[in-house]
Amino acid sequence: MIPNCKETSQLLSQAQDRPLGFIERLRMRLHLAICDRCRRVSKQFDFLRAAVRRYRDGE
């Protein structure tokens, strides 16, 4: 079953904190394939991580 946006954003977030299981990854990818909004958020979460580290280490 394909998760909704809320659940997908939870999976996207957790993917930054732990390795997702096979089924979780599959469900997340199925959703991302059909949802450009969540694809944006996925990229933005990656950006946030990079930005915090850049900020910490000095611009």
């Binding site: 954003s9 977030s13 904190d17």
Partner: peptide, 9 residues
Amino acid sequence: WVMLHRARL
């Protein structure tokens, strides 16, 4: 995980 998700959003 809930708090980290909330923070990122």
